[in-house]
């Protein structure tokens, strides 16, 4: 529960009479008991009505719809960066185990995981936007405004995936079926991708699902540094301004997204690995 009184916050630092405070509380419906407000909210949600923002007086659904595509765009691009950089780096480190390539990759990965996202974002902004002027600062649209935030957000996630991919691949590459595949004369590429990566992929996929929620959290920081509109910024503003209806909607959407992504990942796991069977009535029969 968010502590504090939104009406007090609304008028913080302003001259306001007691009567006007009471009037504002009544107008916003905050004079009702909390359980009534909660059930009223539930009822409205079931009808697809997220309410109206206390601060901007706009319908919350409109507010969310206006920024949701920007957050999705960032999350998808960041996931792409994660997959494109993280998995090949992990595979490369695994097949070059105990060489300088492996060591160098793991040093970079460790540094990258330890780097605060906020700091990394600012450094990237100063280097690529201020010094090189490759990308705009605080631009509102276009692919050029997406590249840097997606790279910053996705890279840290990529480093975590790289570490897991390496350890998972090392485990799989030592298995007998991989040795058999090699002895059959299959190309190293086929051994790594078909026999190695496919079997190492289950934990990677699970981590990718977990990362989806991390991306939402990371989006708050990335959106702040790059001045991008999005759900993360909206959540932070709602907390700061005690805008309950907006915050409730953002939390609900985040929870739904997290649950949905993890459900999809579970189903994909089952599709990838025939040994995974969900315990349903049908399977029991």
């Amino acid at each position: 529960m968010l502590p504090g009184d939104p009406v007090m916050h609304m008028f913080a630092g302003q001259y306001v009479t007691a009567e006007n405070m009471a009037l504002a509380r009544e107008t916003l419906g905050l004079d009702k008991p909390i359980y009534i407000r909660y059930f009223e909210w539930l009822l409205r949600i079931m009808q697809g009505d997220f309410g109206t923002s206390i601060v901007s007086k706009r319908p919350v659904a409109d507010m969310i719809l206006s920024v949701l595509p920007r957050t999705l765009e960032l999350a998808v691009a960041a996931t792409l960066v994660t997959v494109v950089f993280g998995i090949p780096a992990g595979v490369l480190a695994a097949i070059k185990k105990n060489t300088w390539v492996d060591s160098a990759l793991m040093v970079v990965v460790s540094l990258c995981v330890a780097m605060p996202l906020f700091w990394f974002g600012l450094i990237a902004l100063l280097f690529f936007s201020v010094e090189l002027r490759w990308f705009p600062v605080a631009a509102n649209a276009g692919w050029s405004s997406l590249v840097l935030p997606a790279f910053v957000l996705g890279l840290q996630s990529a480093c975590m995936i790289a570490r897991l991919t390496r350890s998972s691949m090392l485990q799989v590459l030592g298995d007998e079926y991989v040795t058999t595949a090699r002895s059959k004369g299959l190309s190293p590429w086929r051994v790594v991708t078909v026999h190695g990566l496919r079997n190492a992929f289950i934990p990677i996929l699970t981590l990718l699902g977990v990362q989806a929620s991390w991306l939402l959290g990371g989006a708050v920081i990335t959106e702040t540094v790059f001045a991008r509109p999005g759900l993360g910024t909206m959540a932070v503003d709602a907390i700061r301004q005690m805008d309950f209806p907006v915050l409730q909607a953002v939390v609900l959407i985040a929870a739904l997204t997290y649950t949905t992504v993890n459900l999809v990942i579970d189903l994909m796991n089952a599709a990838l690995d025939p040994r995974i069977v969900y315990d349903t009535e049908a399977s029991k029969a």
């Binding site: 600012l122 902004l125 100063l126 936007s129 201020v130 002027r133 705009p136 600062v137 605080a138 631009a139 702040t224 540094v225 790059f226 001045a227 910024t233």
Partner: peptide, 19 residues
Amino acid sequence: VKFIANQATRVACLESGDC
């Protein structure tokens, strides 16, 4: 009018020529 909450980003916007 651009809304840039982070002070360092506002300065970067000016120095990069975007503000």
